[in-house]
Design a protein around this nucleic acid. Sequence first.
DNA 1: ACATCAAGAGAAACCGCTTCCCCGCGCAAT
DNA 2: ATTGCGCGGGGAAGCGGTTTCTCTTGATGT
Lengths: 337, 337
Amino acid sequence: MAGGRNTRRVGIADVASMAGVSHATVSRVMNGNTTVDVVIAARVRAAAAELKYKPNPVGRSLALGKTDTIGIVVPDLSNPTFQAILRGLSIAAARDGYRVLIADSSEVSSEEAILAGEARRRCDGVVLCAPRMSDAELEELAPTLYPLVLINRTTESVPTPSLVVDYGQGIQELAAHLVELGHRKLAYLTGPDRSASNVQRLRGLEKFTAEYPDVELQFIPGGNTFDAGFESSDAVASCGATGILVFNDVAAMGLLSGLSQRGIRVPEDLSLTGFDDMPFARYTMPPLTTAAVPITDLGDLAWRRMREQIQANDAASPTNYFPPRIELRGSTGPVKA
Amino acid sequence: MAGGRNTRRVGIADVASMAGVSHATVSRVMNGNTTVDVVIAARVRAAAAELKYKPNPVGRSLALGKTDTIGIVVPDLSNPTFQAILRGLSIAAARDGYRVLIADSSEVSSEEAILAGEARRRCDGVVLCAPRMSDAELEELAPTLYPLVLINRTTESVPTPSLVVDYGQGIQELAAHLVELGHRKLAYLTGPDRSASNVQRLRGLEKFTAEYPDVELQFIPGGNTFDAGFESSDAVASCGATGILVFNDVAAMGLLSGLSQRGIRVPEDLSLTGFDDMPFARYTMPPLTTAAVPITDLGDLAWRRMREQIQANDAASPTNYFPPRIELRGSTGPVKA
DNA sequence: ACATCAAGAGAAACCGCTTCCCCGCGCAAT
DNA sequence: ATTGCGCGGGGAAGCGGTTTCTCTTGATGT
């Protein structure tokens, strides 16, 4: 009653009968098929406009075998990294008339495969962020997901486009920056043990120590939260290092706060680097030297790789490594004389 | 070739022929219809398992007239508020087996109606965040979207469940808090002119001045960005007010930074409040007194309202007002003697 | 032993759209 | 005038399921 809620949606048949043509012709007109007489086409369009007819996407999808939708599986939507990827992906896909269906696995890795499969069945392709999934499971899953783009993962046996941020490279450059400033005693405030990106940073630091054998590097257990950084400030203050590489910006901000409470000045007494270049990294006091990961671009490129596969049916694009861009700011400075 | 990419997806017909039954029977089994002989059902299930058959959701959707998907239209995915709503919505919907399709209107209000309409056609319902859309357009659009939940908007003529954050109430409480601390000269650093939530704050402040006629309140043009807050610091410093209500946390952080550069101490010289309680509000120096909006809950409730409509076909749930919760922190203090 | 009935499974219609196939018609060529 | 051809549009067959309808079959009651 209120607003005509019960009036059945208008379908192609309604337009057809109003325009006095077959529904096949309506379909042709709606799809811009030029083999329709212009006067009839105009009549159909008029009828469609009058009835406010819009083709039912589900019917179209079934007939065409495509949904114009891609899925993205993320482990945690509250993580800014995935938010940015989602955003880049969504905007890029929208430009080409595609929509994005989201699936949040809530960090439950056993859900990831199921969600990805479900998403794939509803969508024309899947972007998969599954940091916790085992390599074996990923290898097995990948072929069934075919139009697939991986984020921060790669597959051995199956050629799948993959976008990985080179965390190792980033942390190496940050460490090298500290060395340039004269620091010879460094410390790395680690991230979560099980985090793949923490492992990559550790590998990068291995390379770093190989390159700079005279630089001392110690490891201090940390975390990926503000509080973890804050609580590490004692350990950091007493470790003797003058240059601190922190797992990420959030923890670095916590550490910054803890150090300032202890009267330790940054960068006069201690130099500090973060990682991620989150929006507020430039607004801390002092502003955080960090490694910027162009994650929105990453979402954008994820779509481009997806589109290549959907359009060309060609999966042969290689892994893209994203080198972070070092942002030099106020939290690092020359070592104290 | 690699991985059997060209093998057509297995359909209900494949299972049917493998199990030696009609596809109708397969459908019955897949949907748990009990009118199927147990031994046949077992045979069908075995065949389905062996072929790894999963019903095609598009076919199901067409037949059932439902997609088990809801859409959400947001003006800007990079806004933490909408990210939180999206997250709450997505998780709540997932618990009931529903997925979420996102549509980012990129702040283009003319897109909002189109995106909402498109989303509605693909989904069983739409959650609409359209702060910029005109009331008239919203009233016209709402009935066509029927299972619809509005965020921070209401409709007059159409009864539509609506979740609105009571920004006016929040800013009133913050202002009252400043008055309690002895402040008699307040200033409101405004948000974007066209923003509906800014207007609501202004209305709240009107009520406030009516209640506290002896308190002076002036308005300073601001914005919703860090830089806008930063650049307002001169105007704020010279305005004579001792208590500053800032449009939101981001701008407040910018202002905080600008004031500190000018040697103005918070809260000793000036008290400052934000709005939103974003994750870092508690970590600024000093920590920001602000109004917390339970936005993830809001996403959760949005789903509940949506489910009510989908299940019961009942739209009669009223508008829910969310009163913000005031977080007293270090950025506000007694007025200087 | 025959009629009645319920259970179970297949045939077919349907959801809304796209597209292939084919036919009728008008025009040009012979 | 007849044939050939191309164009435009209608009919119908899918796409992959669900569900109604109908028919078969075996069991039950008398």
